[in-house]
């Protein structure tokens, strides 16, 4: 429809231009006949003898440009632009999707982090309790050993003390008998024992 109309217009204009061309050439001839004096000084734009030429070549140029643009260039650029719009829309949708995925992944990551932290805390607490229990056991064992050792030592010390006491009274009796003998007396061992015992009791 549009093309028909435009075509009709173009042909109409061409027809008009054809008439104009004839008229213009006729006018040009008369102008030439009239003389060159006005032609050289006047405006080139008003030189009617060139109008036909310009209009003819203008129409040729316009038809060529119209054909080139409407047949080749404009559909091509239009399809490229439409393609690009499609691609951009698709890319944006894909980006949205990726973004949602990324957010999901971030959420999962955070969840995993929280889980891991809880797990770690739990393990720490358990280990601590275990260590504490072992420690308690070891402490108790050590305490028992220490107590046993201490009791043993006590016994030994008492023995040693008793032995030492016995030795001390023996040594004292012997010493007292020797001292009495050295002083020239004879000592009744029983009396010495009694005396030493009494002194030792003090």
């Amino acid at each position: 429809m549009a093309n028909e109309t435009t075509g009709a217009v173009t042909s109409a204009t061409e027809a008009a231009a054809g008439h104009a061309t004839e008229a213009a050439t006729a006018a040009g001839h008369t102008a030439e006949a009239a003389g060159h004096a006005a032609g050289s000084a006047g405006m080139p734009q008003l030189d009617v003898s060139t109008f036909g030429n310009q209009i003819f070549w203008l129409l040729v140029a316009l038809v060529l440009i119209y054909l080139i643009l409407s047949k080749i260039a404009l559909p091509r650029i239009g399809s490229v632009l439409a393609n690009r719009h499609g691609t951009i829309a698709k890319d944006i949708a894909a980006a949205e999707e990726l973004k949602a995925k990324a957010q999901e992944a971030e959420k999962a990551y955070n969840q995993a982090l929280v889980d891991a932290r809880n797990e770690a805390n739990r393990i720490i607490a358990a280990t601590k309790a275990e260590i504490q229990a072992e420690l308690n056991v070891a402490t108790a064992k050590a305490d028992a050993e220490i107590a046993a050792k201490a009791a043993e030592s006590e016994v030994r010390i008492n023995e040693i003390r008793a032995g030492a006491m016995a030795a001390v009274s023996q040594v004292a009796q012997d010493t007292a008998g020797e001292i009495v003998g050295a002083l020239g007396g004879t000592a009744d061992p029983a009396a010495i024992v009694q005396a030493v015992t009494e002194r030792l009791k003090g």
Binding site: T21, A61, L64, I65
Partner: peptide, 18 residues
């Protein structure tokens, strides 16, 4: 003389535009 079909400088520059 410039006839309607003469190749002029106008033709040249219209051609360059095309």
């Amino acid at each position: 003389p410039i006839e309607w079909y003469t190749v002029t400088n106008a033709t040249l520059w219209m051609g360059i535009a095309i």
